[in-house]
């Protein structure tokens, strides 16, 4: 009998894929922005099922609370809202699909054919503290470089978004 856990897992997996389809194929850009919420949130639920709760929290915090608001602000500022539904040119759809579907075929073939050597009984060290200590002793350099990357992104984006100078 499929227990409740797998029902929820399959539901959020399907929600992620279907809202991603909506993001791509909806004509009104603001509708696709709002359906991005469903994608990001269902991905966070999938992270929780993969016992990565800190990554799920950061995913909701940054993607839903940050990047999506950034997209909505950009849509507001670039007057994208007044056009009710832009006509999507199907001329370029064919090459895009012709490229993407064989790629999907290759992915699925690789996923189902290769036998990944799986760890039998998975005992992950639960909890965020083990993630934190791993982050700070093995991945210390990328952690410090991330702050420099953020500084560069901040200065660059502020320079670009400063009105007035042509």
């Amino acid at each position: 009998m499929i227990d409740f856990k797998t029902i929820v897992l399959i539901f959020f997996g399907a929600l992620a894929v279907s809202s991603a389809v909506l993001v791509v194929f909806l004509r009104n850009i603001v509708y696709s922005a709002f359906s991005l919420i469903a994608t990001f949130f269902s991905l966070a639920v999938l992270f929780i099922f993969l016992s990565a709760e800190f990554v799920a929290g950061v995913q909701v915090l940054i993607y839903v609370g940050g990047i999506l608001i950034l997209f909505l602000f950009a849509l507001m500022l670039s007057q994208q809202l007044s056009q009710k539904a832009v006509k999507l040119s199907s001329t370029k759809l064919l090459p895009a699909v012709l490229l993407a579907l064989p790629m999907l075929g290759i992915f699925l073939f690789v996923i189902y054919q290769t036998d990944w050597e799986l760890v039998q009984n998975i005992q992950m060290e639960e909890g965020v503290a083990s993630l934190a200590s791993l982050l700070l002793d093995k991945y210390l350099l990328p952690f410090e470089l991330a702050s420099i990357l953020l500084l560069g992104a901040l200065v660059g984006a502020l320079l670009l978004a400063r009105p007035g100078e042509k």
């Binding site: 909701v60 915090l61 608001i69």
Partner: peptide, 13 residues
């Protein structure tokens, strides 16, 4: 605490 901040962003949305 991370959960409180994450859910706070839904209200702004």
């Amino acid at each position: 605490v991370l959960y409180i901040l994450a859910m706070g962003s839904f209200v702004a949305l």
